[in-house]
Computed example of a mutant assay.
Amino acid sequence: MRLLFIGDVMGEPGLRAVGLHLPDIRPAYDLVIANGENAASGKGLDRRAYRMLKEAGVDLVSLGNHAFDHKEVYGLLETEPVVRAANYPPGTPGRGWWRLEAGGESLLFVQVMGRVFMDPLDDPFRTLDRILEAEEADYVLVEVHAEATSEKMALAHYLDGRVTAVLGTHTHVPTLDAMRLPKGTLYQTDVGMTGTYHSIIGGEIQTFLARFLTARPQPFRAAEGPARFHATELVFEGGKGVSISPYVWEEP
């Protein structure tokens, strides 16, 4: 099973990069998953952004701390392969995991959100324990949407040997630590952002800079400009992870 995970799609530049590049490379992969929590103008997911990702070839869209910024997401969570963090409190709309099939094999995708410098959700460690006890699949991919690299690494080592791969998202900064952990789980701290890097984590430079200079709230504006497509390639075979490697494409 060859899988491509696309890092946080940020606003119009991110959607454009996915639309321009993914159709060309889509035949090389059995499954494509994208984090789309910033796809709608930089915050949240709406029907237009979801449709653009699906039409480009994305099989499943994950969310994050901006999951519920658009009301349209509630309908998507009810009917479409859209996943929010599994460690939201009981009763939260949607689901935190999804099962995908490709080539006669199954993939269980689970997302959890970190709690360090983030919203105080339920324990992601025990949430994953419960899901892994209840669900079975040939392969398990866990996305950890978290601010602290230490929390992502802690979750990865906690899951080492129990899941096929753990990928981090949220910081919009790609890391060069793609590796195999001691018990075989593939890991990368952050896949990075698909959007314009002439920005401050995808936001307009002047308004984001003003937050630091004035210590006051500023309007949120997603940056414009040429985009980079950041993703991670995963190869699974024989019930285990075979390889992990970052993938980068830059808009001409």
Score class of each variant (00 low, 15 high):
residue 210 A to V: 06
residue 151 E to W: 10
residue 18 V to I: 12
residue 153 M to H: 04
residue 37 E to L: 01
residue 201 I to D: 11
residue 34 A to W: 06
residue 196 T to C: 07
residue 224 E to P: 07
residue 184 G to C: 05
residue 246 P to Q: 08
residue 43 K to C: 03
residue 224 E to H: 13
residue 109 F to M: 06
residue 73 V to S: 05
residue 11 G to S: 15
residue 179 M to Y: 09
residue 23 P to R: 04
residue 164 T to I: 10
residue 227 A to V: 05
residue 202 G to E: 10
residue 212 F to S: 07
residue 223 A to T: 05
residue 214 T to N: 04
residue 139 Y to L: 01
residue 11 G to D: 15
residue 86 A to S: 14
residue 21 H to R: 08
residue 13 P to L: 02
residue 26 R to G: 12
residue 129 D to L: 14
residue 85 A to W: 00
residue 48 R to Y: 10
residue 211 R to L: 09
residue 137 A to P: 03
residue 63 L to T: 06
residue 22 L to K: 01
residue 157 H to A: 13
residue 67 A to F: 09
residue 214 T to K: 14
residue 136 E to A: 15
residue 69 D to S: 13
residue 198 H to N: 15
residue 178 A to F: 04
residue 181 L to N: 11
residue 57 G to W: 03
residue 111 Q to E: 11
residue 55 E to I: 03
residue 196 T to F: 00
residue 7 G to W: 01
residue 110 V to D: 08
residue 33 I to T: 06
residue 239 G to T: 12
residue 212 F to L: 08
residue 29 Y to G: 01
residue 211 R to V: 04
residue 209 L to S: 11
residue 203 G to I: 05
residue 238 G to C: 12
residue 190 D to N: 11
residue 71 K to L: 14
residue 220 F to N: 02
residue 162 R to G: 01
residue 58 V to Q: 08
residue 124 P to E: 02
residue 190 D to S: 09
residue 14 G to R: 01
residue 249 W to P: 05
residue 18 V to K: 00
residue 243 S to Q: 10
residue 6 I to R: 06
residue 238 G to D: 03
residue 199 S to V: 13
residue 120 P to T: 08
residue 171 T to W: 00
residue 165 A to C: 05
residue 225 G to S: 02
residue 50 Y to Q: 02
residue 188 Q to G: 12
residue 179 M to T: 09
residue 11 G to R: 00
residue 12 E to L: 14
residue 221 R to F: 15
residue 116 V to T: 02
residue 61 V to C: 09
residue 51 R to I: 00
residue 237 E to Q: 13
residue 248 V to F: 02
residue 215 A to E: 10
residue 14 G to E: 00
residue 84 R to A: 06
residue 66 H to R: 01
residue 82 V to H: 08
residue 44 G to A: 00
residue 126 R to V: 12
residue 73 V to T: 04
residue 104 G to S: 14
residue 192 G to M: 08
residue 77 L to I: 03
residue 152 K to S: 02
residue 23 P to T: 13
residue 112 V to E: 00
residue 32 V to Y: 02
residue 12 E to Q: 15
residue 237 E to Y: 11
residue 183 K to G: 07
residue 227 A to I: 02
residue 189 T to E: 06
residue 120 P to Q: 15
residue 222 A to D: 13
residue 168 G to P: 10
residue 179 M to P: 00
residue 97 W to L: 04
residue 120 P to D: 08
residue 116 V to M: 05
residue 246 P to C: 11
residue 96 G to D: 06
residue 63 L to A: 12
residue 39 A to L: 03
residue 212 F to Q: 15
residue 145 H to N: 07
residue 233 E to P: 13
residue 39 A to S: 13
residue 173 V to K: 12
residue 98 W to L: 10
residue 74 Y to E: 13
residue 244 I to L: 12
residue 76 L to G: 01
residue 18 V to R: 01
residue 229 F to K: 10
residue 240 K to C: 08
residue 44 G to I: 09
residue 144 V to D: 00
